[in-house]
Amino acid sequence: MHVLITGGSGLVGRFIADRLHRDGHQLTALGRQPLDWLQAGYQSWSLSETQFVVPQADVLIHCALSHVPGKYRDGEGDDPHGFIERNAEGTVRLLERSKAAGISHFVFLSSRAVYSEVVNWAVLGETAETEPNTLYGQVKLVCEQALQSLCDDRFKGTSLRATGVYGKAPGTQRHKWSDLFAAFERGESIGPRLGTEVYGEDLADGLARILDNGSQRKRPFEVYNVSDLLLDRQDLIKLYAEHKGVKGAALPPRAEGPVGVMEPGKLKALGWTPGGKERLQAFIGSLR
Rank of each mutant, 00 (worst) to 15 (best):
55 P>Q: 08
43 Q>P: 05
29 A>F: 00
77 G>I: 11
50 T>L: 13
31 G>C: 02
174 R>I: 06
108 F>K: 12
43 Q>G: 06
134 T>E: 12
272 W>A: 00
209 R>G: 12
246 V>G: 09
146 A>S: 15
171 G>I: 03
189 S>W: 13
228 D>N: 02
5 I>K: 00
219 R>N: 15
216 Q>G: 09
275 G>L: 00
51 Q>G: 08
150 L>V: 04
229 L>A: 10
201 E>F: 04
142 V>H: 10
201 E>W: 04
221 F>S: 10
154 R>S: 15
87 N>H: 06
178 S>Y: 08
155 F>D: 12
189 S>H: 15
101 A>K: 06
90 G>W: 03
127 T>N: 12
284 I>Y: 10
126 E>H: 01
267 L>N: 01
112 R>M: 06
68 V>K: 15
131 E>I: 08
38 L>F: 14
10 G>I: 03
250 A>S: 07
57 A>N: 05
226 V>D: 08
34 P>R: 13
90 G>D: 02
147 L>I: 08
277 K>Y: 07
239 L>S: 04
97 R>A: 07
116 S>T: 09
112 R>F: 07
70 G>Q: 02
214 G>D: 15
103 I>G: 07
204 A>K: 09
66 S>Q: 14
38 L>E: 08
170 P>G: 09
61 I>N: 01
201 E>T: 07
136 Y>A: 11
180 L>I: 02
132 P>L: 14
37 W>Q: 12
101 A>F: 02
46 S>M: 06
35 L>S: 13
205 D>S: 15
218 K>F: 09
181 F>M: 14
288 R>F: 02
170 P>C: 09
36 D>H: 13
222 E>N: 13
90 G>R: 05
219 R>A: 15
20 L>P: 12
68 V>D: 11
248 G>P: 10
189 S>A: 14
209 R>E: 14
1 M>S: 13
17 A>L: 02
253 P>D: 04
174 R>N: 11
182 A>P: 00
83 F>C: 04
263 E>A: 10
282 A>G: 08
99 K>S: 13
47 L>E: 13
178 S>A: 14
244 K>I: 10
171 G>E: 04
163 T>V: 12
196 T>G: 11
31 G>T: 01
90 G>M: 04
270 L>M: 07
44 S>I: 15
261 V>Y: 09
79 D>G: 09
84 I>Q: 06
38 L>K: 09
12 V>N: 05
217 R>T: 11
167 G>V: 15
236 L>Y: 06
119 V>D: 14
276 G>M: 05
202 D>P: 00
4 L>N: 13
268 K>T: 15
154 R>C: 14
64 A>Y: 05
287 L>G: 10
